[in-house]
Computed example of a mutant assay.
Amino acid sequence: MHVFHNPVRTVAGLGALAALPELLGERRAVLLTFGEAGALGLVELLRLRVGDRLAAVIDCITPNPDLADLELLYPQVWQHRAEVVIALGGGSVIDSAKAMLVGTPSGQFHEIRRLLRDGERFVPPAVRRLIAVPTTAGTGSEVTPWATVWDREQQRKHSLHLPETWPEAAIVDPVLMRSLPDAVTLQSGLDALSHALEAIWNRNANPVSDALALAAARSILVTLPALLRAPDDMALREAMAIAALQAGLAFSNTRTALAHSLSYPMTLRFGLPHGIACSFTLPLVARLAIGRNAERDAVLAQALGPLASAPQRLERFLEDLGVRTQFAAYGVDEAGAQAMLEAALQGDRGRNFIGAPA
């Protein structure tokens, strides 16, 4: 028996933002977004649709949310009377919003900090709902309950996961993605490819996640290079957005695996953007995955073609997009890479990998 669960109501496709008023209803909302959203006209697009139901706009979200940043953000969000948080942006914005959803007994962020660092749980006295509106095609956070939170003080990465951190709804509208810089299109697209493949070489895979991951991987391998050549092509933007959504739905049930476990120190210690950090090792992880499990091999072959040469084709795909696939290119020597691999296999996400030690 297989179980697949995802409670997020999802509206996707060109013009999907038009569904926002119905999804919000009569409730009031705080909008969380990134600093450039106003200049890009994205904030005004939302204002036009929700009017005076928008209680506040907070546009200070920066990449890779840190505990210290979220602690400052928390009272800004909770000072406004609102039942909903709308997150407009990429993964960092949506993950930051998830950390704002649960009220704490003290009214401050301390309890969430202790939850992340020490596992000290509490009963939220209040909860807000999340409508996630991604502006990148790759994060998947709009359909998952997890929020990545960085803790640079302790040099750690935390994953916030509560029943309350599932988004209530996701609006995936490629119109919001057409102004993306090429670098962000590339990084977010590779993040989505990593999500798809990580859902396949995963101990938690099931037939539903496989179907979604396969559709996503096949589409991304064709669509992403084409989109980078023609960034104004809205049909390609839509195809990429749908593929990223499918990958997000796939790993919402499997979680990620070894490539993501390897990515965290690369981002924390070496400053590598997440989409590059979780994708440059895909050929390496593919080599480690192939031959481990006949059932997984069959699915991987559907995604990548003949497995004997699949890692080399992945390398060529990434190198053609300008992404180096060796640790040395990012300042990590052979001994450091081996130590990182061994640690990653023992990590929370690494243990999902089919080649991880039992």
Score class of each variant (00 low, 15 high):
A356E: 00
R237N: 07
F353V: 00
L115F: 14
L282V: 05
L212C: 11
V133S: 03
A12M: 09
S188E: 09
G90N: 03
A199K: 04
A199D: 08
V172C: 13
V149M: 01
G138Q: 00
E315S: 13
A56Q: 13
N6Y: 11
R9F: 09
A337F: 05
D95W: 01
Q108T: 15
E111I: 13
L190C: 00
P124L: 07
H2R: 13
G103D: 10
I171Y: 06
V77A: 02
S261M: 04
G248N: 04
W201G: 03
E71D: 15
R128G: 04
G331E: 10
V11N: 07
A12W: 06
L249Y: 14
R255E: 15
L300H: 02
P225E: 04
T281N: 11
A29L: 08
A55V: 01
V3Q: 10
L321E: 09
V222E: 15
H158S: 07
P273W: 14
L48I: 03
A211K: 07
L345V: 01
P7H: 08
L307I: 01
S261E: 12
F109I: 07
D52W: 06
D151N: 05
V57P: 05
G291D: 09
K157A: 09
L186S: 07
G305F: 01
N352L: 01
E342L: 09
G140T: 11
V133H: 03
M266S: 04
D173S: 09
L40T: 00
A243Q: 10
H110T: 14
T33K: 08
R255Q: 14
R47E: 14
